[in-house]
Simulated scan of single mutants.
Amino acid sequence: MNSNSQSADAETYSHRLADIVGTAIALLTLTLPVFVIAHFSSSNVQNNQQPLTYTLPKGGK
């Protein structure tokens, strides 16, 4: 009976560890893309602006 209780403790520990690791992975999966997109989009908005005006060629034959 004693060996049965030891395996139950080890199973509970591994299950709890799996829950913690799974939660950490889920939080990273949900938050990391948001921070990466916010970081790169805010730094590139001001640097990549090009003028919207242009000259049209004069047509005529």
Rank of each mutant, 00 (worst) to 15 (best):
M1E: 13
N2Y: 05
N2L: 06
S3E: 05
S3M: 07
N4E: 01
S5D: 04
S5M: 03
S5Q: 07
S7T: 03
S7A: 03
A8E: 12
E11D: 06
E11F: 06
E11M: 09
T12P: 00
T12R: 13
T12K: 10
Y13S: 00
Y13W: 01
S14V: 02
S14G: 00
S14C: 00
H15A: 14
H15Q: 13
H15K: 13
H15T: 10
R16G: 05
L17Q: 07
A18F: 06
D19K: 10
D19S: 09
D19H: 09
D19P: 01
I20M: 01
I20T: 05
V21Y: 03
V21W: 00
V21A: 03
V21P: 00
V21G: 00
G22Q: 02
G22E: 03
G22Y: 05
T23F: 12
T23R: 14
A24R: 09
A24F: 12
A24Y: 10
A26R: 14
L27T: 09
L27F: 10
L28F: 12
T29H: 09
T29E: 08
T29L: 14
T29C: 11
L30V: 14
P33N: 05
V34D: 09
V36M: 11
V36N: 04
I37E: 11
I37W: 15
A38M: 15
A38K: 15
H39G: 13
H39S: 12
F40M: 11
F40C: 06
F40V: 12
F40P: 04
S41G: 08
S41N: 11
S41W: 12
S41M: 13
S41I: 10
S42G: 10
S43Q: 08
S43H: 06
N44I: 03
N44D: 01
N44V: 04
V45L: 15
V45E: 14
V45R: 15
V45N: 13
Q46C: 08
Q46E: 13
N47Y: 13
N47D: 14
N48V: 09
N48E: 05
Q49H: 08
Q49T: 10
Q49C: 08
Q50H: 06
Q50P: 00
P51L: 04
P51T: 07
L52D: 10
L52G: 04
L52I: 09
T53I: 03
T53M: 04
Y54V: 02
Y54T: 01
Y54G: 01
T55I: 07
L56A: 02
P57W: 01
K58S: 12
G60M: 13
G60I: 10
